[in-house]
Design a protein around this nucleic acid. Sequence first.
DNA 1: TTAGATACTTAGATTAATCTAACAAATTTG
DNA 2: CAAATTTGTTAGATTAATCTAAGTATCTAA
Lengths: 220, 220
Amino acid sequence: MASSTEENYLKSLFNLANEQGEVSISDLAQNLHVSMPTANSMVKNLQKQGWVGYEKYKPVILTQEGKKAAALVIRKHRLTEMFLVKKMGFGWEEVHEVAEQIEHIHAPKFFERMDEMLGFPTIDPHGSPIPDAQGRIQEFSYLPLSSCKVGQEVQLTALTNSSTEFLEFLNGRALRLGLNLKIHSREAYDQSMVVSYDDHPSETLSEKVCERLLVRVIGK
Amino acid sequence: MASSTEENYLKSLFNLANEQGEVSISDLAQNLHVSMPTANSMVKNLQKQGWVGYEKYKPVILTQEGKKAAALVIRKHRLTEMFLVKKMGFGWEEVHEVAEQIEHIHAPKFFERMDEMLGFPTIDPHGSPIPDAQGRIQEFSYLPLSSCKVGQEVQLTALTNSSTEFLEFLNGRALRLGLNLKIHSREAYDQSMVVSYDDHPSETLSEKVCERLLVRVIGK
DNA sequence: TTAGATACTTAGATTAATCTAACAAATTTG
DNA sequence: CAAATTTGTTAGATTAATCTAAGTATCTAA
């Protein structure tokens, strides 16, 4: 069974591979805030346990077992986030730190009961998919708001970044998942967009923000 | 801040002191399933951090800070047990292992929300008191059933042992906290007692069991 | 195409938590 | 009370996870 530390490495490898494709030792080290030699020796350890394939100076690749193990940790993390928000009254900006700890709890029934109580959710509070109990993960094909056109109506469905600062920024503008946005204009100079929703008749969102908002087109 | 390991030592010291008074290095080592040298060096470490007082060959004594730190870990443990039983549908025999892990989570709001959702409970599912947020613990004065007299009516209020095996034994006889028991007889030879409750007109309980059942006298 | 920069590895040290072996103090008991 | 037993301590080793320093491989770009 993986230690908490090993679980964190598996999770990082999984997430980095999804974001970037190939994952180098330095990517991994940076992501986990450890030195390269530390990441290097842990990768060798993970390899010995059959979770990753690795050859000197080559990218690190999760094996099938490694992917499954990683997905199951991510499952625990995202189920926990959903539970904290839906059942315990946490804000979506407060759940990450707690979930980072609870994801390492070994207690199948605990997470099964969360899953049941939540009605078997498929996404977490930030719109990321929750892997199933077999470690299978459903991929959605959402677009960044930044790639949408003026005049379109879209629904905010997920985020590519769930840092506390970004979530607090969204809270400040009453932006939440499920909201319908109308795209009124885009500024050619800096790619910022003006949108409206609910009782917000005109909000300007920077390119940086628009890239992090994932949407589904619903109109025009 | 105490590591999980340190928290476990503090908890053991607190519980052992309550059960036995003086706590030796060997008591501690036995209780935590570690060797005496391990317990010895951890006690020195806890002393350096101001949680225990210790002199060579003398009993280990928690300081005020040590007692408070221990009580706050026990608070997290017992709140978690109550949450698992009352909010997540666990049986009282299933909660210990999970609570042993969750008690080490550092997330004040998580436990505050549990407390609120449970209506600020004062006892856990096994009748043990839950320390308050300041680490103060309310002591009850319950009697073991074994010390009660034939003819008395008593209410089952707590247990002195909450091992899975004992709890499953109680489950098998539908014995649970809050139940009123009538004491019909006691066998002089082995101190076993015959009691009745609910639709159980006659159950024989061994001395070992009677010592572990804590009650409040309500009649005769 | 080779010099310089970047990425990676090796070597060796550190810390927390554990162990066993050996010795020392304290307690119990004949 | 002295011997035997129990309890506690010291010394030294181990493992997981981390680090820094130093050296090596790979990539990039003049």
